[in-house]
């Protein structure tokens, strides 16, 4: 129950911070009168802050004392954060290099690496199979969209 309370409090803090950041940004908007482009953002910022405070107040009392099972949304397996971070890193790398390296090469590389990262612990990494799927999928998608649907995916180093 304690971790649950802490988690709910953290959510409240995040909510309140989001509201405050938005409020500060809104205060920098130019004003032209009471009802102008900043009016609605002020209302929204106020509501966000209010909801953040309400969430913080709510987290102080164990409201769901009778239902501890509800707390963690039934997470059975502990979250595997290293895999999440690796996945995020790969997606960021993929997006960053997409236009310079080009869609076909970058997609094949990304897919190959991502397959390996996500392979279940009990299964063996099938390097040849993964490489084949990655290259084929990348080329098929590239050809279908670039030549079939006229979508100008970046070609990069390869001129195909």
């Amino acid at each position: 129950m304690d971790t649950h309370t802490r988690k709910e409090r953290l959510i409240g803090v995040v909510m309140l911070c989001a509201g405050l950041v938005y409020l500060v940004m809104t205060m920098n908007l130019p004003r032209k009168g009471f009802i102008d482009a900043a009016f609605v953002p002020y209302v929204l910022a106020f509501i966000l802050c209010l909801l953040g405070v309400l969430q913080l107040m709510n987290s102080r009392k164990p409201a769901n004392a009778g239902k501890p099972a509800e707390a963690d949304d039934g997470e059975k397996v502990p979250a595997d954060y290293p895999t999440v971070l690796k996945t995020l890193g790969l997606i960021v790398l993929y997006t960053a290099l997409l236009s310079t390296v080009g869609f076909p090469i970058m997609t094949a590389l990304y897919l190959y690496a991502q397959f390996i990262v996500l392979t279940p612990a009990g299964q063996k990494v099938n390097h040849i199979g993964y490489a084949v799927i990655a290259v084929v999928a990348s080329l098929v998608i590239y050809y279908i969209f670039r030549h079939g649907f006229d979508l100008l995916l970046p070609s990069g180093f390869l001129d195909i």
Binding site: S99, Y110, P120, I133, A137, S138, F145, F149, L151
Partner: peptide, 25 residues
Amino acid sequence: VPKHILLPIILVLCVVGAFGLSSRI
């Protein structure tokens, strides 16, 4: 069909879709 194969391909297709909206990274 194993998810670790399916999901990365879906992600690539989402990327294609987003890029295709107005050809912007």
